[in-house]
Amino acid sequence: MPKATYILPDGSKNTLAVPNGQSLMEAAIHNGLTAILGECGGSLACATCHCFVEDAPGPLPEISDHEDAMLDMTATDRTEQSRLSCQIIMSDALDGIVLRVPDEM
């Protein structure tokens, strides 16, 4: 199974095995990482799954207009690395991806 690493606001690192097809928001929730809230369950309505992609081994999906608009409303200001983790679907090409979870959701 491909792996994803989450760097939490306290600096700790969590590496999870994530099944192909699962979003990186869902993976965090199912593994009890409460720093990612995922309030809207992945329907692009809450921006509480905001992450900074520190390292992407493969190409990420395009940012849709809707995601782009939500990224403009995040609690921690967006950067070039900002993505909503509910929109990143795990695949072998992303094995080893590293996400940093912002302080403020």
Partner: peptide, 11 residues
């Protein structure tokens, strides 16, 4: 056991 599931519980 897993409070991260709060959004699903609310749903």
């Amino acid at each position: 056991d897993n409070p991260a599931l709060i959004p699903s519980a609310i749903n």
